[in-house]
Write a protein that binds this DNA or RNA. Structure first.
Lengths: 343, 343
DNA sequence: TTGTACGCGTTATCAA
DNA sequence: TTGATAACGCGTACAA
């Protein structure tokens, strides 16, 4: 069915090598040859077989982006930016979803799953640091971690300063005069570093302001989706002394929390101010619009892609820790200015 | 670096064939041999090379899902379901994003882009029917269309009845007593079939109810994102006689439209009722919660995956047109019951 | 039951 | 500048 190099060579009455020279844009080919070969390729509708090429060269030109859940808006937006960034440097991206499956994550990292092929891995993990640390052989392919930060410097990563981001968010709430501040998204297990860092930032901001951190105000979330934010906020509001502000570790949690406040007959931000992290598009149109910590995801994506690409070309490089900037954006959910929505 | 079949054979002092028999789970291998080989594989940390395997067998076990924009929630939710459905039948999924690029779409369909490899294609297209129809050679790999419907039956597709879905949505608005009903998402060009079908359903519902379709009420949308919905609704509300209901061709448009109504100092649903299509999670938590037409995306995903898988195994089959069911869900944005949000 | 040899479609080496 | 040929790693027909 599909024409091969050999077919073209036969058809054009030249050697296989010559055809390949034309395909690969080799310099020293006579104009006459080139034309003859191109005519044959045209006629046979020749397309290089990427699998054979990959087998031979060991390069596929594909990066894998691995996220827990692709339908969580932040990950979807990240995927969009990664695809764009990769496109700029000549890579294609395949997106994979682990579904919070630690085994699946480990498989990808160790290369145990080689059903898919890629030259490098962009990994937004749930996997525990301890598991990553236990991977003494190192990852099977060049690896860049997204989001997670504190892996004793063994792997490349690009992330924001999570402790600082949380600190800044909480300070914004404190600046509003709020004192009973709760947090949603805390992870009691030590398996996740990002939530821990955010909790640390939360505690520091509270302590520095001389405010008490009440343990019942620290709520876990089974996952970072609206339903979990809703449930946690509902529980918070049912406390004898409900909070007057909630810091959510993800915008999606915040969206659920806002709805829960409303369903309890209260107002955001008058009764309860809410702030999240991620700056997803949804928060720019919701009622109220959502205050948040913005991450400059395009920048993160570009840095991460550049980093794997570099490492693919030069494997020996020492691990790099890239910290992306963040900005607190005050919108209606903390009584900020009504933003101008551009059409 | 990575061990090959041959390495394992040498190490275990057996033939290559025997190793392969063990790897592929062949029945007739003596227990002794198997153990010896497995020990060698363990020791050398052998992993089959999927590229070589694919080159040899012509099968990669990978399906490609192609969507215009992965960070549009409906596509992200679709991707999630497709990945899950594919997993159940032993396929992996790569997600690709065309970014509204018709050339890119054509490349994928015709196989001009063979930089990525997959056994089958799930395609949620923007490509014009005429372009698809012009593809006389047929697609390069088994293909299932998602969403688009009216392609003279040459290709498999699975979609809802778009005309009927629109009809049902508009009838719901009419049942509320609304009479000045607008639509957002109309595509004036004839390049997209889905919007056209929805417009047809809109017109039929209006006509059957004896209501006038006012042309200024039919608004285009450059893309199906919040910003476009916001802009279109803002323009509608600026008309001398603004609508009292808006039917949006996508939930995301509706989210933008709702915000525009609010920013105009009006209320949803009291002044303007709003309904969308897609039933994305966002609409279950927004204020107001969003009335919509729900699509049973998991079912669509399963059917589509099953269809490509079938066609991969048996290429000759006639094209199948699968119509998925839809349901109008009345929520707050059309004055429906306040839904119970389950935690 | 196990071993040998060839081919999948490229790219790369070595001569000519 | 071009031609012949080996190799990438695996799967399988055929033989033993």
């Amino acid at each position: 069915m599909a024409a091969t190099l050999r077919d073209v060579a036969r058809h054009a009455q030249v050697s296989l090598r010559t055809v390949n020279n034309v395909v690969s844009g080799y310099q020293h080919v006579s104009e006459q040859m080139r034309r003859k070969v191109q005519a044959a390729m045209e006629e046979l509708d020749y397309r290089p077989n990427p699998v054979a090429r990959t087998l031979r060269t060991g390069r596929s030109g594909v990066l894998a982006l691995v996220v827990p859940e692709i339908d969580v808006p932040y990950f979807a937006e990240l995927a969009r930016e990664v695809i764009n960034a990769a496109d700029e440097v000549g890579y294609r991206v395949i997106v994979d979803q682990t579904g919070h499956d630690h085994d699946r994550e480990r498989q990808l990292l160790t290369g145990a799953d080689r059903s898919l092929l890629f030259d490098g891995l962009l990994f937004s993990p749930l996997v525990t640091p301890s598991e990553l640390r236990a991977m003494q052989d190192g990852p099977a392919v060049p690896l860049v971690l997204l989001g997670e930060h504190d892996f004793d410097g063994r792997y490349d990563h690009v992330a924001i300063d999570n402790e600082r981001a949380a600190y800044d968010a909480v300070q914004h709430l404190i600046g509003l005069g709020r004192e009973r501040i709760a947090a949603i998204g805390v992870q009691p297990q030590e398996t996740y570093t990002t939530p821990q860092q955010r909790t640390a930032g939360f505690r520091r901001a509270m302590t520095e302001a001389g405010l008490a951190v009440r343990e019942p105000y620290l709520r876990a979330a089974a996952h970072y989706r609206r339903a979990a934010g809703y449930a946690a906020a509902r529980d918070l509001l049912a406390l004898p002394q409900p909070p007057d502000a909630i810091f959510c570790y993800a915008d999606l949690l915040a969206m659920g929390a806002v709805r829960a406040v409303f369903d309890a007959g209260l107002s955001v931000p008058d009764d309860v101010a809410v702030i999240g992290i991620d700056d997803i598009d949804e928060g720019r149109y919701s009622r109220p619009t959502l205050s948040t910590v913005s991450l400059d995801t395009p920048h993160i994506a570009r840095e991460a892609v550049k980093r794997v690409a570099d490492r693919i070309d030069e494997p020996g490089q020492p691990a790099l820790q890239i910290t992306a900037s963040h900005t607190v954006i005050a919108r209606e959910s903390t009584g900020g200015e009504v933003p101008i929505i551009h059409s």
